[in-house]
Amino acid sequence: MEHTKHIWRAAILLVTVLVVLVVGRHFVIPKSFGEMGYYRYDALFEYMGKEMRHGSPNACADCHDEIAAAKASGKHAPVKCEVCHDTLATHVKDGEKYADMRINRSYELCAYCHQKLVGRPALVAQVDLLEHLELSPGQPIPAEACVQCHDAGMIHHPE
């Protein structure tokens, strides 16, 4: 065919670009991509490698066996230590204590479970905070209102 030289050149250029792209793409696909599905399988192992913040359920008993034993037979037995305190990771590193554990004495902490609410199942003891403290609406609740009477001993030990 005459006078089609430019068409052929354009076609060759296009095919070259296409081949370069298709072949080039192979060199940038991540290593473990497609091993177990259409994703980078190594991503799964990156998730596995993350540090735990909360300890095992019984980790606290390793050092605090007395409190743990007492608590286990008390009303707060189903409540894990870290619920009211903080994660083990804020307290222990490589099996050694490196910082004090947080002790939360605020009434808000108790209210999370024990404030009387419409719809809250009767699985837990509930009080209307204001009524219980004999406060009128709008009056501020003292920061440590609950633990003034219900101290740590009562919380950790069988009543």
Partner: peptide, 10 residues
């Protein structure tokens, strides 16, 4: 693309 053919046929 190095082709200067702009004849009627092209």
């Amino acid at each position: 693309l190095g082709v200067y053919d702009i004849s009627e046929k092209a």
